[in-house]
Nucleic acid binder design. Structure first.
Length: 571
RNA sequence: UAGGGCGUAGCCAAGCGGUAAGGCACCGGCCUUUGGCGCCGUGAUCGGAGGUUCGAAUCCUCCCGCCCUAACCA
């Protein structure tokens, strides 16, 4: 894995280190993360803020959280609160440096007038459609793309006085939504479209979640971002690759203004994960159209989804750390996320026994009415987790798939006449198979060997398999939700022309099991608690869980080489 | 020949002129009271072609492929 402290640091930290070495910003390092509060954040965002936060930590600098709330049409307070909650959950902290771009609206407005007075911004009456046309649309012909130079807006040469007057009246609310904009006067022939007189302000009469109706003109991202960075004294402004084309504009604005701070924008490749989607727009669609139960559906890559699924924050951090930071568009295999997850859970999750698909077993030579308490280890990876007692009796449940009447070659679990071990209990041998009229197996009769108490045979006799089990009279009923990848395809967006990507949703991404049998020790649990159900995977108590009705989410299965073998055989 | 960016094994990713780290996945094997965990082993000449050099994945040239941008979204 890429551990900076071991071998190397990512290219961004190299740049920062060099800036510090050269004495830029007096050796100060200050980063920020600027989410737009228009949805809940996902693991791709975690890569972004963990990077900015990590850089600040590594260089003994500061980190700000700043909400980029310049478009009231999409933004809501609930997302502000949710984002803060999710970031704290991941262990990120910004002391008292919580900011909002909207706090800078007045300063931004003053600077806009400054640019107008300098002849570098003008009020334009062109419609959105007209602006687009004037900018020069790319033309595709014979494999070539030609971008014709743009045409100047007919309003480009208004006098400073007229622009100032118009702009003030824009703010005063004299014009209708969309009828006018303030544009930077740069170069309509510039090869970078972003430099062709970009819009700085538009008229939108929508109540802002923090500013209320104080404004009817709102600054655009480009006009807000670099200035906000400068105001906060940000030294290194990290963002994803799609903003690379905006960097010249980011710098241009800073160059025109009487600002001393010089934040430096650096871009990295955003995270893509297989079998899921990572765009807020798509995730919102999944939620709004009811394909998932909400932003916190355990199948969602959102931080709240992963949390409900049972991911410890440490596993996510380890994952983000492991994938590295580069400028190439990565498509990371979820298998790596799952690896980090299991790695973490294996060390911390206490083990319990739970039978998800119960098959009754009667130990015919075990005394009726007798109950024994057997000692089970809570976590073989962590001695401090201690042990617990598990009740054993004449009637038990085992996993239905752990028995086969006609076992294939490599199946070495229970079968007629075969002896296996019940974990921490006894060796048992299957003597009879009981079926109903339809031929379905409904019960197994077995005998046990009293000498193997605890699971070891004094004569050194060995068995191939160890099964988990639960005593019938002590078992607690539970609901277990089995989750799998939300999309079957590695890249859900890679669909045929005209096909809806939503058709790619994995129909088995959620399977709800009821009547599962869990060991009595699980009678006292609280939402969020994580366990390993031996041999079945890692599970987390869902918020829906109630004392009389426990509900578990499967976070991830165990690695399962038997399942793999079986699949190979079928293939 | 629009502008910008990327191209090292299936995936992520080191390498910054001295002769290809590491991780995941995969495949073998060992171990095992979780077919879990752990341990051991197996794979690339670096998108392609030229050039510079004693020597290049690392420098130069050309070519190819992929991504981003044409919202008054961010």
């Amino acid at each position: 894995m890429n551990k900076p402290e071991e071998t190397h640091v990512d290219f961004i930290r190299q740049i920062v280190a060099q800036d510090v070495a050269e004495g830029k910003n007096d050796g100060r390092v200050h980063t920020r993360w600027p989410p737009e509060p228009n949805g809940y954040i996902h693991i791709g965002h975690a890569k972004g803020f963990l990077l900015a936060y990590g850089i600040a930590k590594d260089f003994n600098g500061k980190f700000n959280l700043r909400f980029d709330d310049t478009n009231p049409a999409a933004e809501e307070q609930q997302f502000v609160d949710g984002i803060i909650e999710d970031m704290h959950w991941l262990g990120v902290d910004w002391d008292d440096r919580l900011f909002f771009a909207s706090d800078y609206f007045e300063q931004l407005y003053e600077w806009a007038e400054y640019l107008i007075k300098a002849g570098k911004a003008y009020v334009c009456d062109l419609s959105a459609e007209e602006i687009s046309k004037h900018r020069g649309r790319a033309i595709h012909e014979n494999d070539r793309t030609i971008t014709p130079p743009g045409k100047n807006s007919p309003y480009r040469n208004r006098s400073v006085e007229e622009n100032l007057d118009l702009f003030r009246r824009m703010r005063a609310g004299e014009f209708s939504d969309g009828s006018k904009t303030l544009r930077a006067k740069i170069d309509m022939a510039h090869p970078n479209l972003n430099m062709r007189d970009p819009v700085m302000y538009r008229i939108i009469r929508v109540t802002h979640h923090r500013q209320g109706d104080a404004w009817c003109i709102y600054p655009t991202y480009d006009w807000t971002h670099g200035q906000s960075d400068a105001i906060e004294g940000i030294t290194h402004s990290t963002c994803s690759l799609e903003f690379e084309n905006h960097r010249p504009l980011y710098n241009w604005f800073l160059d025109q203004l009487p600002i001393v701070n010089r934040p430096r924008q650096i871009e990295y490749g955003r995270l893509n994960l297989t079998h899921t989607v990572m765009s807020k727009r798509k995730l919102r669609q999944l939620v709004e159209e009811g394909h998932v139960s909400g932003w916190d559906d355990p199948r969602m890559p959102t931080l709240r989804g992963l949390r409900r699924r049972g991911f410890p924050p440490e596993a996510i951090r380890e994952f983000i750390h492991g994938i590295g930071v580069t400028k190439s568009d990565g498509f990371v295999d979820v298998a790596f996320l799952e690896y980090c997850l299991r790695q973490d859970l294996n060390k911390r999750a206490q083990r319990r026994m739970a039978v998800l698909d119960p098959l009754k077993v009667v130990i015919t030579n075990y005394p009726e009415g007798q109950v024994e308490e057997l000692t089970a280890i809570n976590n073989p990876e962590d001695e401090s987790a201690g042990t617990r007692q598990v009740p054993f009796s004449r009637e038990l449940y085992i996993e239905r798939e752990d028995f086969m009447e006609e076992p294939p070659k490599r199946f070495y679990r229970l079968a007629p006449g075969r002896e296996v071990r019940l974990r921490y209990a006894y060796f048992i041998t299957c003597t009879d198979v009981i079926k109903d009229e339809s031929g379905n197996i409904i019960e197994l009769r077995c005998t046990y060997d009293p000498a193997t108490r605890g699971g070891d045979a004094p004569d050194g006799r060995r068995v191939r398999a160890t099964l988990h089990w639960v005593s019938v009279q002590h078992a607690i009923d539970a609901e277990v939700r089995l989750y799998d990848h939300l999309f079957s395809k590695e890249n859900p967006l890679d669909v045929e022309e005209g096909e809806d990507w939503l058709n790619g949703i994995n129909p088995d991404s959620l399977v709800v099991l009821t009547g599962c049998k869990i060991e009595p020790d699980l009678g006292n649990i609280t939402p969020g608690e994580r366990f390993q159900f031996e041999r079945k995977g890692y599970f987390c108590v869902d918020p829906d869980s109630a004392p009389e009705r426990p509900v578990f989410n499967r976070t991830v299965t165990m690695r399962d080489t038997w399942a793999k073998l079986r699949k190979q055989k079928l293939a």
